[in-house]
Design a protein around this nucleic acid. Sequence first.
DNA 1: ATCCCCATGTAAATTGTTACATGATTCG
DNA 2: CGAATCATGTAACAATTTACATGGGGAT
Lengths: 175, 175
Amino acid sequence: MSDLTELEGAALSLISRSQPMTTYAVRSVFQQSLTNSWSASAGSIYPLVRKLLRANLLSETQQKGDGRGTKMLSITRSGKTALRDWVRATDANVIDPVADPIRTRSHYLDSLPSREQKRLVTEWQRLSRNVIAQIKVSIEQGQKSGDRLEVRALRASQLQMEARLTWLSELEKEL
Amino acid sequence: MSDLTELEGAALSLISRSQPMTTYAVRSVFQQSLTNSWSASAGSIYPLVRKLLRANLLSETQQKGDGRGTKMLSITRSGKTALRDWVRATDANVIDPVADPIRTRSHYLDSLPSREQKRLVTEWQRLSRNVIAQIKVSIEQGQKSGDRLEVRALRASQLQMEARLTWLSELEKEL
DNA sequence: ATCCCCATGTAAATTGTTACATGATTCG
DNA sequence: CGAATCATGTAACAATTTACATGGGGAT
């Protein structure tokens, strides 16, 4: 049917792997993700799921004997098709470099006094190293629980962050 | 005053480097950027500049003798302060790994037939290499014209894309 | 009982996209 | 003089955030 947005694709893909699951659980996964971008507030995820239900890409079944109105989501046949199309369609937006807020801020560095430039770059390095350490911990956890897909994605984040560190140390030498 | 969004910060930072410049020129720079995320449509950039003007972070001066109503933007004293604060404020959203659409799609790979998994990964590698080649051309151009800041940012994009390639070749071996 | 998590959602406001609309200037 | 580019902007729609609002279930 209609093309999926990034968030729709990610949600549909998650549900397809972990079905049946609640909307609440989908949201929790996004919230716990180490990646920025996806805060996935209630105000975005519930309407999004409703939209996917109406488009018949998801189906829901009410849980009996649960006063909370818990509903389990599953992907439909059309949902699987839409998901495949989404994964296959590789246009420029999917391939192009993604905006790194640190890189964005680097444009402004020259306007700061030299001492503060160095201080900031050092701070960015320190914080990025912390994140990498966190990622490594998560990778170990993922390996223990045998979650190959999660480990794979975390490894991508690790490499991305290490690339940033490489760049920051090049930058440091320039200053 | 109020905290700047990424787009506001980027715009303000750009204007602070290249002032005086028109809103149209700001938009052109964003459009030509190799980074996805910033399509910076007229419908986003003109209202954004208006907002920064109202907040007194920018000032504009009408160009005389230009029937197009060309207005030149400059950063104000408060604008400089806001920009400094924006660059200095390094919270989690600034540091955390950024969402890579390819990484997002990788979650779904396992659901595809093995042959198609390999085909997709190969395709992603090919397209990513193309982008890297493009970046290298831009870097050379930037070096010739002596645009240090641009070269610096492009180098960050290059490293980010190379990290993705490294990851894709690890993935390839897994399959 | 009480606290935390599960689970649902809505309302208002902001932000951003797509598509449209207009006209001036510059370069060949 | 015609085409590309410069330059401004708006209108309708879509997506997202922030903040609010409600209540059940399970563990101590």
